[in-house]
């Protein structure tokens, strides 16, 4: 599982305050904690500061990179903010989170990723509104993938996010997502998928149980990327189980290692 650590997001109170006060230590600690707990990318989001987003995003990237070699996932639809953040980013190629088929977003972000080694999350959303069915999602995914390939983005650098919608408003929404994951991983061998899956449990109680079970099933269908809190032990346990049950854990080594580390106590 490729974990994109989601905690450095300005819409979270503590982070929003840390950014405003330029509290380097606070941001650095959250970055280091996520990297130590298995994040492959550290998401940075300064979206609530509209006018100052380029400055704040740059500041976040610098502080994350002061404590870890794990690359950033630059979380913004604003090309100016992304370019500013990329200009200071060092080391392994960062991720852009995210492009979509919405016209403005597509046109603004495509030139940034074209012909580069940047990883890119591509969200199954278009100007026609939220996709409802597997077909809706696959049509958008197909355009996203082909559009990106044409601009020399490598298939293995694309992370398709089929968009999770809440089970509480439509009982089919879980399967729509899961079946899309399966079709994407079959149709585009070598591509990645990623999502923030907690939206599945919106409007229902005891959300963490739904989120974990959904993760386990999604892994069986081929999901290999997650935008999540890497310190969420229950979710890490669900991932470990999912990978073992889906035949992605040789000799159940990761499962056993996690067991010995006390993950299932």
């Amino acid at each position: 599982m490729i974990i994109i650590g989601e905690l450095i997001n300005a819409s979270r109170k503590a982070i929003g305050a840390a950014i405003k006060e330029k509290d380097e230590q606070a941001v650095r600690k959250v970055a280091a904690d996520q990297a130590e707990n298995g994040a492959s990318f550290i998401d940075v989001n300064a979206g609530i500061f509209v006018d100052d987003e380029p400055d704040y995003l740059t500041w976040l990237v610098k502080n994350v990179q002061a404590v870890t070699d794990v690359p950033c996932a630059i979380d913004s639809p604003n090309p100016k903010a992304i370019e500013a953040a990329l200009a200071v980013h060092k080391g392994a190629a960062p991720m852009i989170n995210s492009i979509s088929l919405e016209k403005d977003r597509w046109e603004n972000l495509l030139p940034i990723v074209a012909g580069t080694d940047l990883k890119v999350v591509a969200l199954c959303m278009s100007d026609d509104g939220m996709p409802q069915t597997v077909d809706d999602r696959m049509k958008i995914a197909d355009k996203l993938v082909n559009g990106l390939l044409q601009k020399d983005v490598k298939l293995e650098n694309i992370f398709i996010d089929p968009l999770v919608q809440p089970l509480s408003v439509n009982k089919e929404f879980g399967m729509q997502f899961l079946d899309t994951i399966e079709q994407i991983t079959t149709q585009f061998a070598g591509i990645h998928t990623a999502c923030g899956l907690s939206n599945i449990s919106y409007g229902l109680p005891a959300r963490k149980f739904i989120n974990r079970a959904f993760m386990t099933i999604a892994i069986a269908k081929g999901l290999d990327g997650a935008i999540m809190n890497p310190m969420d032990k229950g979710m890490i346990a669900a991932i470990t189980l999912g990978e073992a049950l889906a035949g992605k854990d040789d000799f159940c080594m990761k499962y056993l290692k996690a067991f010995r580390a006390g993950l299932f106590e």
Binding site: P166, S168, V169, Y202, G203, L204, P205
Partner: peptide, 10 residues
């Protein structure tokens, strides 16, 4: 109050 959930409301 969190005593009824979205599916029940629907």
């Amino acid at each position: 109050e969190g005593d009824m959930f979205i599916p029940e409301v629907l």
